[in-house]
Write a protein that binds this DNA or RNA. Structure first.
Lengths: 204, 204
DNA sequence: GAAGTTCTAGAATATTGTTCTAGAAAAGTA
DNA sequence: TACTTTTCTAGAACAATATTCTAGAACTTC
């Protein structure tokens, strides 16, 4: 967990900032976003109000900092997975595998992301969010273009591909993170990879 | 919209309660859950603090009331759609069609549901939520059972079916409701119905 | 029409996010 | 090192907002 924050806030100097993020994440996970107060975080981190506000500006900023740290880590884990693919099918399978593995390994961060997304998207950090989302599906759309030309992938409305590929896996991850299903995402990894491929392939 | 609340809170007696719900929904949609204050709702509904707290106990209760009203309406619109199906394929297609139509027609309620879900699931109304979710997929799972026995639907882990069927459509609806894609859900209705069927069918 | 219940109203209170000022620690500079 | 500047910590003071409480109006019931 610390390692995730060290990517975004490196150096011994920022150890305390990372510590606050760590404690805040734990509080948010245990009590929910609204229910955790700044003072709860202050106590847990053995810090001070001034320190928290200095580093994060306000509660929303703290949530956003955690959200973007999680998003960046997810991105960093998923991007390389797809680069090794030789065919469109391999790219799709690699995408789903990487996603399900990340959620399973970083359950705390993943749960936080789902909970905090609305808050971040609604606030003043919306722009940063949009920018990263564009970059996110760039590589994938290239693979799809190739696949369509090669006759391996169906030509569908552009704006539906992302949902068709990741929607099922994401839905299951939400269910798992909130305790509605038991098996962790990786335990059905082939089911979801196969379903994603069937959804877009010409001949599944 | 009023008609939706009349199902849950019927009668002329409760007109004011419904009016508060209506105004609260509009406030939540325009400013987000956290940003709208009780006083904002009071002003918009031309009501009083006491009245709001009398009807809904607290802010969380108001959110939950809206959430369950939306959930019930969605349920009421989707349940009959599947009953007319003659084959597993028809059942799956009917499910997706009904879902996408409801979200498109009740965009305000649908957006609210996605935003409020975490808050409702985290709070003391969690039990009511679980109960309704069980009822929700009951009819569907029956169809799947039949389909599996008839050799038309693949035998997959039980807990993955719901995600496989609805995940893609839901993901697209989220994207549409938050402005990330342009085409409304019904404009891709066949794409998502077909993808859902391919995901679970033996021979798509 | 009287008793009981539900509903409206808003002032008072409590909780909690945020600002502000002062000083400590660290980094830069000569 | 000694001085300056910047960054960070600390918590009291403040402001915004959810919630409680009491009183009375409106409606139901018998």
């Amino acid at each position: 967990m610390e390692s995730v924050f060290e990517r975004v806030e490196p150096g011994a100097r920022r150890a305390h900032k990372r510590h606050i993020m760590s404690c805040a994440l734990a509080c948010f996970d245990e009590q929910g976003l609204e229910a955790t107060t700044i003072d709860t975080i202050r106590q847990r981190a053995d810090s001070s109000i001034g320190s928290i506000y200095h580093h994060f500006r306000n509660k929303e900023g703290l949530v956003a900092a955690l959200y973007f740290a999680a998003l960046d880590d997810q991105q960093a884990c998923m991007a390389p997975a797809m680069e090794g693919a030789a065919t469109p099918r391999e790219a799709v399978v690699a995408l789903i595998h990487a996603y399900l593995k990340w959620v399973t390994e970083q359950a705390l961060l993943a749960r936080f992301m789902f909970r905090a997304r609305a808050a971040v998207a609604g606030g003043p950090f919306n722009e940063g969010l949009k920018a990263r989302n564009k970059a996110r599906y760039g590589a994938l759309l290239e693979w799809l273009e190739k696949g369509v030309k090669a006759g391996e992938i169906r030509a569908l409305p552009r704006e539906t591909y992302a949902s068709l590929l990741i929607g099922q896996a994401e839905n299951y991850c939400r269910a798992w993170l909130s305790g509605r299903v038991k098996g962790d995402p990786t335990s059905h990894i082939d089911v979801f990879a196969e379903a994603a491929w069937r959804s877009v392939a010409v001949t599944p």
